[in-house]
């Protein structure tokens, strides 16, 4: 009972909302990537691996060049490169997209530690100096608003970017010709092909976009929220993002809502150490919630019709 009061007390301070938004954004970026990729008809369970690759190369680049912007760029490209592999294997070679996704996740976990060992030997990778981390930005004037200011206007730069991307992707997906085509390719590729839409180009673009977004999330994790790379530091966040995508019914805004719910759990855990519930027990919740949604208990969540099916012209 006492503990419940402590948790409720947390909600009086802006800290818990601030953390919720931060963690939610970390999940939002790969979740948006998943939405784009799967809307185009390519199943993507590889956000975990692409994020991890981004996290690793962000630190490597930042330590080598002492330039955070270059490091972020490298991370984005690294994530995009992993996605390119997924795209080539699953679009060009019609490979099973789950196998390819699993392989990406395995190779990311293995390669990052392998390279860590090759580049830095047995010694630690070292940590990035504070001035070379992705900065927190205080928005002038607005950050002075009581309560609201500290929550929304004292965030990491990536948080603002992610929110802009969220709005942009939502508009592109549902309000533009490009978005309509992307969704058509994911729902009925042969009809889209007949209408003159290049199925392959759109799918390549969508998958690579998911890698770019996941790579950015990786950089946010390693040189934004942290200052070094730890093996397997994504710790299943790519899979939680996958869950958020499903939870949000393959829509950007829905996914964001799910990310905030999942982020809240982490935020509560972060802001107090005296919860009687085991944090490990709490960690199960996002997955259980997603299972409940999948089971159809809280409305059905239905993937795009052609999700996961390689497209071959004339094979209907």
């Amino acid at each position: 009972m006492n503990a419940l009061l402590i948790i409720l007390g947390l909600f009086k301070s802006p800290d818990v909302y601030h953390s919720t938004l931060t963690y939610g954004t970390l999940l939002l970026l790969p979740a948006l990537g998943g939405v784009i990729s799967e809307r185009s008809g390519v199943v993507n369970i590889a956000m975990e691996g692409m994020m991890l690759t981004g996290a690793f190369f962000a630190v490597v680049a930042d330590l080598a060049w002492h330039n955070v912007w270059l490091a972020v760029l490298v991370a984005i490209i690294a994530g995009g490169f992993m996605a390119l592999i997924h795209a080539v294997v699953s679009i060009r070679y019609h490979a099973d997209q789950i196998v390819s996704g699993v392989a990406i996740n395995i190779v990311a976990a293995g390669l990052t530690v392998f390279l860590l060992n090759q580049f830095y030997g047995v010694q630690e990778i070292g940590s990035v100096a504070p001035q070379f981390l992705i900065p927190n930005i205080k928005v002038p004037v607005l950050d002075a608003i009581p309560f609201i200011g500290p929550i929304f206007f004292e965030q990491n730069l990536v948080v603002y970017i992610a929110i802009i991307l969220l709005v942009a992707i939502n508009i592109i997906l549902f309000r533009t010709r490009l978005g309509l085509r992307l969704r058509a390719v994911g729902e009925h590729p042969s009809a889209a092909d007949t209408a003159g839409i290049n199925v392959y180009t759109l799918r390549y673009g969508a998958v690579i976009a998911s890698g770019l977004l996941s790579g950015l999330a990786g950089a946010f994790l390693s040189i934004g929220l942290s200052n070094t790379f730890v093996p397997n530091m994504t710790d299943g966040r790519g899979y939680i993002a996958l869950a958020a995508m499903i939870f949000g019914k393959w829509t950007p805004l829905g996914a964001f809502a799910a990310c905030l719910i999942f982020g809240l759990g982490q935020a509560i855990y972060d802001n107090t150490s005296i919860i009687p519930i085991s944090p490990y027990f709490l960690s199960m919740l996002p997955y259980i919630l997603t299972l409940v949604v999948l089971a159809g208990l809280v409305g059905r969540s239905i993937p795009p019709a052609a999700d996961g099916i390689p497209y071959e012209p004339g094979n209907e």
């Binding site: 392989a103 990406i104 395995i106 190779v107 293995g110 530690v113």
Partner: peptide, 15 residues
């Protein structure tokens, strides 16, 4: 050489 090379090999087999 890190034993993680084995995971790289495994992923390559999968690809």
């Amino acid at each position: 050489i890190s034993h993680n090379l084995v995971f790289v090999l495994e992923a390559l087999v999968l690809f």
